[in-house]
Design a binder for these strands. Structure first.
Lengths: 219, 219
DNA sequence: GACTCTATCTCGGTA
DNA sequence: TACCGAGGTAGAGTC
């Protein structure tokens, strides 16, 4: 990784046009070739950047980064305050826990957390507009489509409604009802769900996970 | 801006749980207080981060960053290879051109690029669920709601449909039709628009801009 | 503060 | 490669 602190101006042309007037900034060049221009604020996002793969021509007073999509980043270096390179080596990478896939898995294992007597038919049940997160049946054998989100917002309700429309055209499944499950369901999403005749449920992730470990404890 | 190159492990706990095993990485602390952990790849995005405002306790061998939402970033420094601080000063900031606002402005000036005889009633026409990008009338005086996107995807079509629902309840406007305009309309969005009785149009940004400069040339 | 929508979104998966 | 969906989305604007 190469780090250059420099007084510079920057022009980007590609998906939009952008210009940065003269100031001192940090240029970061990573081993994969991506270039980022950082100011001393604005969170972690750089002011300008160019992802790999690209071609960097780094003359002492001007860097030009181009890629095959016709994007172009031009940095004019007026004064270089520091220019250092480090060998960081490969990164073993990140492990995550608590995202939507995990929530879906937990609910697939405990569909009764959504409604009494609910049983899983299958995860990722396919339709011609994409897979439904969970397809279940209730105690009376009626089909219920479940959409799982970490954050329940309007888009998710619309998505579920589109799936229900599709499934409901299948005489073997009809009538299909829906449950919208999320850790938190936003007020607007609640209203829209009610309007569409869809039940919504806020799921307690820690409780679900706890329930799982309770079961594990039995063995 | 403080830049620390260090062999470290990282743990984040908050909106999810994440762990980074031991490796050499760059820690970036900006003047606004945000902390980012960068590896030597993966584009401009850091592996882990904590935005401002937060509290950083930076002991020599362990940094703990916490915020008021209960998020916590813990960095264990096993070996510090470099620790430098630069005064970058304020950044004058970025000027952009070519984003959605610009496209909307151009279409407001040239509604006939969307359909022959179309005339603008007003931009950002208010409804009780938010403003419609453009409200127009066609040659016969019928109202047409226009949603403008840079990238036309499913969400945008649903958004337009919600606006149309609202506008259509107004007896002074009814019946209201819709046009979905974007630089590129994705296949799924095309299908959904057709399904909802909405016309979609791909707009050539450069052409529109060119048309504008043609007009300017007349003066 | 909550909610809205944009973004050079980024990133990963898949066909 | 393009398309599609998720994101610790971030960030700006509005109410």
């Amino acid at each position: 990784m190469r780090l250059v602190v420099t007084r510079c101006t920057v022009d980007y042309s590609g998906r939009l046009e952008a210009h940065l007037p003269e100031a001192v900034r940090l240029l970061m060049v990573k081993a994969d070739g991506c270039v980022a221009v950082h100011a001393d604020g604005g969170a972690y996002k750089p002011l300008n950047w160019m992802n790999a793969p690209n071609v960097l021509v780094d003359d002492p007073d001007r860097w030009v980064v181009t890629n095959s999509k016709g994007e172009r980043l031009e940095i004019t270096l007026l004064e270089v305050l520091s220019d250092t390179t480090y060998d960081l080596g490969d990164d073993p990478g990140l492990t995550k826990d608590g995202v939507e896939a995990h929530l879906q898995q937990l609910l697939a294992e405990h569909p009764d957390a959504l409604a009494d007597g609910l049983q899983l038919v299958r995860r990722e049940y396919p339709t011609d507009i994409g897979p439904v997160d969970l397809l279940c049946r209730d105690g009376e054998g009626s089909y219920i489509a479940v959409e799982v989100k970490r954050r329940g917002e309007i888009d998710g309700v619309e998505q579920l409604r589109r799936y229900m429309d599709r499934l409901d055209r299948d005489p073997l499944l009809r009538p299909v009802r829906g449950i919208f499950a999320a850790q938190r369901v936003k007020p607007q999403a609640r209203v829209l769900a009610a309007d569409r005749g869809i039940r919504w449920i806020e799921v307690d992730y820690d409780l679900l996970r706890g329930r799982q470990s309770d079961e594990l404890r039995l063995f």
